[in-house]
Nucleic acid binder design. Sequence first.
DNA 1: TCAGGTCGGTACCGATCGGTACCGACTGGG
DNA 2: CCCAGTCGGTACCGATCGGTACCGACCTGA
Lengths: 205, 205
Amino acid sequence: MARRYRSVPFWVKGGYHRGMPVNARQRLLTTAEELFYAEGVRAVGVERILSASGVGRASFYRHFAAKDDLVVAVLRGRDERWRAWLADRVAAHGGGPLAVFDALAERFVRQDFRGCAFINTMVEAADPDSPAHRVAAQHKSAVTGYVETLLSTAGVAEPASLAAEFTLLMDGAIVTALRERSAAPATRARAVAAVLLASADRSPG
Amino acid sequence: MARRYRSVPFWVKGGYHRGMPVNARQRLLTTAEELFYAEGVRAVGVERILSASGVGRASFYRHFAAKDDLVVAVLRGRDERWRAWLADRVAAHGGGPLAVFDALAERFVRQDFRGCAFINTMVEAADPDSPAHRVAAQHKSAVTGYVETLLSTAGVAEPASLAAEFTLLMDGAIVTALRERSAAPATRARAVAAVLLASADRSPG
DNA sequence: TCAGGTCGGTACCGATCGGTACCGACTGGG
DNA sequence: CCCAGTCGGTACCGATCGGTACCGACCTGA
């Protein structure tokens, strides 16, 4: 059993000059997230993460009992930041439900775009009961819930079913962008969503 | 350099009783396809394929120069059979463009459903230039082309753009089914596609 | 001053990875 | 009958996998 990180240690205050980012745990999370997203969880060994982050092998297992725990921690962090990013970009694009596709379009044109980390996780972690797969599925539920609030705010009478369709379109756009590598799938999905939104019932008022 | 399989050998005619299916190459392809689909390409080692298929290690490398060659061969075979299966099921469901979603619904409820092998391949084989990734992308193009012919036959004026939207919906449904594990995503995508089809321009006649 | 905790570095472990080489058994066509 | 070719089995290779143990250096709070 590896010991766990407890509180803020000494070197976050003073000038710690050994590694760049704050502490070992944070460096591991940041480095692993990059590598996992770019090449896949299974394709990236612990050694790669250690050399890329400059963290010692023992330090790794002091913070994470196993590689799988790092994977889950990375996914949880990405889930939070991704949804915060989405809310930010939606607001920047007017705050309407269709803005989620404008946000996706921004991601698709990045040259480091490699699809959705959570879809990729559900593909790689085949077992639906595995912790990583569960976290990925939870992320999708959370996104669907967020889209539902957007639709509700926009005055859609029964936002739940339309939110499910929006999420399906988002996932379809992401997977399509994986091979088209352009913003086109986002605008395509947006156009479809616009048709759905236009024909949706509006709540009174 | 491993020698390649040339022509039909002796034991396909006579009673070959060592292994069940016809020959070693076919057994390798069948077994590998099952395992790759169920657990992922990277997760399945050569040893697993050998023990599960009953093929000797040397025989493996007589037929395939490397594991990657087996992967590509598996994908090519699956591409052909999958599209033949789709055409068959579409015909069974009336032959209309929307029948593709009825076909998908059949797949989603299978308990061995693990998404689309080609989407999974594009996720696992991160490098877009890798042979496996290329074959997977080609498969999607072929499916889109097939959907386009369905739309054209149905009298849609400009079937290309609508075919792209249909394919996006299909991929979205597949990814969604990966976590919902039911036919619901297929019917959901079908409903969306029906709206698009209804509002599409029809060619004269 | 000193115990306690975190740090990076390294040696090491058994297991598995993809791949090669060689073996004897088998069967067909010449 | 015998050579060519395919078969399954196995020993073996170097590399890498995830994980453990121990080290000295460093800083903190008592």
